[in-house]
Design a protein around this nucleic acid. Structure first.
Length: 488
RNA sequence: GGGUUGGUAGCUCAAUGGUAGAGCAGCGCCCUUUUAAGGCGUUGGUUGUGGGUUCGAGUCCCACCCAACCCA
């Protein structure tokens, strides 16, 4: 079912709980309580469990086993679950009346004495109980959980409560981001913050979101990349900088695209794309080992069968764009543009008629190389038309000194020897802009004209990196609150 | 944008065109050591929305909404 239209407030399940909430108030109990000082987290209490000790814990009621006058409940917090035992005679009639107004999902703080039940379960015998929060809506089924993907995305909090593996992925994402920051900071990179609202959305080719600044009476764009500002910092004397934050692109959503996504960009003065490739290789393997604990990442289907295992073991393959295409389609570069179109037809690679020849080649690359490359591969020396912000190769001016890192059939990270010639840069941006000259960031070009050191730069799409490392098949499984159309 | 599949109770799922059901949750009762506790009973539905075909539609047809997957 859709699961999203929430039950309305007259629904019996809601009304029953609301009445209990009101009954608590009538007894002088605030159903939305205050600070509750615990002696430890539930995990810690379990860890040091000793019969006879008194503990104060807080958490959600996640199970209730009713034995008549005695009750066993599970209390759960972020560190674990513990059983508590409530007996009518031991807590007294007043507390027992309050207890009867509780439901699964309510937050409870209790003080109790540790003991072990017959069945060997560490348990706290409740002495006093405090209502911390009354849940007016039921939580997902304790046994079947929450499987409806639409509800999992729209009401992520329910997914996090019901599906521990979902929570694990997000904790891994957090750890990945943390380890990336640590890795860069240990190497002397400074994390900077540059504008998310830009007068001209530069640094990539993508449709921007538009907004408006009232006081300044000007349109602004949410950034599609931080690149042009980070390069201004290279001009300004910052030599090793990075930014790890959100970009916005006003394009479709798909398994691999969310309109806002997290990007890492790193720039290092006096370096080149090869140095940056080395760094990315070291960074990703370091993060994988620390967070995932292995360099062999299993990707599974919905039934849990391993579809493929991505092997991150170093050294990663490096091969030129040209060589990889020749590998996939021998003789490709000796064909005429017409022959290439025919070849595509024969190979069932669909083309649109308006594609330029370099785009036909790029399409072949995407279909026959990128989508079939699962273990890491640095694709180097791409055609210059594809990359307007990188240095041309000294030996072959038709290609640029860049890599494109492919893992899991997706672009994970581009790396450049950054173009620092302001005259060439202006020309390349003008060629790319075509008629739309107003999209050229003159302030950036002015900055370049003051001198930018040669530099290596990389971008890493964090969402796709997390997908690759956690085995997620959809970006929505690694973004806490993915964009969805409103239900109503 | 196109194609395919799906949307039934709070959750997880059933239901040849012929009375909309089960388990869990809820509610009531029994039970003082349970572990998805158990037993007995019971409430709960505009079957995504709107039309149509039919004696009769959850089921067939059309349009729309939302989602997943594939394609562009």
């Amino acid at each position: 079912m859709t699961g999203f239209i929430p039950m309305d407030e007259t629904h019996a399940l809601f009304e029953t709980r609301r009445q209990k909430m009101l009954a608590l108030r009538e007894k002088g109990v605030d159903p939305y309580g205050q600070r509750f000082d615990v002696t430890g987290s539930i995990g810690a209490v379990r860890e040091r469990f000793a019969e006879g000790h008194c503990e104060r814990i807080a958490g959600r009621i996640t199970a209730h086993r009713d034995m008549g006058k005695s009750h066993f409940l599970d209390l759960t917090d972020s560190t674990g679950r513990i059983q508590i035992f409530i007996h009518a005679k031991e807590v007294g009639p007043e507390a027992y009346e309050i207890f009867k107004l509780l439901d699964m999902g309510d937050f409870l703080g209790i003080e109790g004495e540790a003991f072990i039940t017959k069945t060997g379960e560490p348990t706290l015998r409740v002495k006093t109980l405090n209502v911390l929060s009354k849940a007016l809506r039921p939580l997902p089924d304790k046994w079947h959980g929450l499987s409806d993907v639409e509800t999992r995305y729209r009401q992520r909090y329910l997914d996090l409560l019901a599906n521990p593996e979902s929570k694990t992925v997000f904790k891994q994402r957090i750890a990945i981001v943390r380890e990336i920051r640590r890795f860069l900071e240990e190497r002397g990179f400074l994390e900077v913050e540059t504008p998310m609202m830009q007068p001209i959305a530069g640094g990539a080719a993508a449709a921007p979101f538009k907004t408006h600044h009232n006081a300044l009476s000007m349109d602004l764009f949410l950034r599609i990349a931080p690149e042009l500002y980070l390069k201004r910092l290279l001009v300004g004397g910052f030599e090793k900088v990075f930014e790890l934050n959100r970009n916005f692109r006003n394009e479709g959503v798909s398994r691999r695209h969310n309109p806002e996504f997290t990007m890492l960009e790193v720039y290092q003065a006096y370096a080149d794309f090869q140095i940056m490739a080395d760094m990315v290789e070291e960074m990703v393997t370091t993060v994988a080992e620390k967070v995932i604990g292995t360099l062999k990442i299993d990707h599974k289907d919905s039934e849990g069968n391993v579809l493929r295992t991505i092997d991150l073991t170093r050294p990663w393959r490096r091969a030129s764009y040209r060589d990889l295409i020749e590998e996939a389609v021998p003789g490709w570069f000796s064909l005429t543009p017409e022959q290439r179109r025919e070849k595509c037809h024969a190979m069932h690679v669909e083309l649109s008629p308006e594609m330029a020849d370099f785009e036909v080649t790029q399409h072949v690359f995407e279909k026959l190389v990128e989508e079939k490359t699962f273990n890491p591969c640095f694709v180097t020396h791409c055609p210059k038309e594809l990359v307007p912000l990188a240095k041309q190769n000294l030996a072959n001016p038709d290609v640029v000194d860049v890599y494109e890192l492919i893992i899991n059939g997706q672009e994970i990270s581009p790396g450049y020897s950054e173009l620092n010639d302001p005259i060439v840069q202006r020309q390349r941006l003008e060629d790319q802009a075509g008629e739309e000259k107003q999209n050229i960031d003159d302030d950036f070009l002015t900055a370049l004209e003051h001198g930018m050191p040669p530099a290596g730069g990389v971008g890493i799409g964090i969402d796709r990196l997390v997908m690759m490392l956690t085995g997620a098949e959809s970006i929505r499984d690694v973004v806490l609150f993915p964009h969805m159309k409103p239900r109503a």
